[in-house]
Amino acid sequence: MSPVLIAEQVLNGVQSGVVLFLMAAGLTLVFGVMGLINLAHGSLFMVGAFAAAGVASATGSFLLGLVAALAAAAAAGALVEVLVLRRLYAREHLDQVLATFALILIFSEGVRWVFGSFPLFLDIPTALSGTVSLPGGILYSRYRLALIATGLVVALGLYLLIAHTRIGMQVRAGASDREMIAALGVDIGRLYTVVFALGAALAGLAGALVGAIQSVQVGMGEPVLILAFVVIVIGGIGSIKGAFIGALLVGLTDTLGRLFLPPLFALFMDSSAAATVGSSLASMSIYVLMAIVLVLKPSGLFGART
């Protein structure tokens, strides 16, 4: 196994981690501020991808597609927040889980109703297609590099937004004491809608970005959603920093596990069996990681509250 291959795989791990971060950031923000667990976050990811594919194929512009993804996911998020989720903040997590499970059913079949059962097409923009040479002789997809950059920019932007702006202050205050901030005259209802729409827009962005290199189809959001859960459990719920570190950890563990486990087993069994056993265990590696983190730190790496 050459160092170039390993370096490339590390980049791949970072890239998948960065996309997971876009998903996990919205989830953790919504939980941190509103105390809401949202299973339908994966549906917003899907809405973003479909909006991007629809608009990009109509206009021929990937950029317009991205804008549409952000707008559609944010709008869908805001709508859902105002119509449904708002009534659930004070409820038990159980009700939230069920209501958002119901939303998944509605979103999935609704999207299928509108767009049909066939997967949609979304291509990467020509400016970002092909590969670039990185130092050390690594050939790497330009689009994936752009994904990593986008993710890092969004992470930085979120940090600045939360640490240094007025709305960020309200978000932090809201996370620690909801009654108090309402008493101070902040329009808490509007704040919640804005935060939810922001989280939804991030999920939509992730959906559109990923849609260009994968297939845009119904049900694409749920596997990512579950990975995002693993991320925020590892990182600590409510912590953006935790989501970032957790996402990178999960991305790297998954990618490197798939790279190293099959050859590891090939050392002491025949290659076909090693490929099956190795990939079976690789598919479980992130859950093992999660279990280890939980044993050591039950509230996640950066979780403040339990």
Binding site: V97, I226, V230, I232, I237, Y287, P298, S299, T306
Partner: peptide
């Protein structure tokens, strides 16, 4: 393992173990 946590952590962890 899961009961070391509670609330929303518990929901997500049980979900993740199921996926495993």
């Amino acid at each position: 393992l899961s009961l070391r946590t509670n609330g929303v952590y518990f929901i997500m962890i049980t979900l993740a173990f199921g996926q495993m």
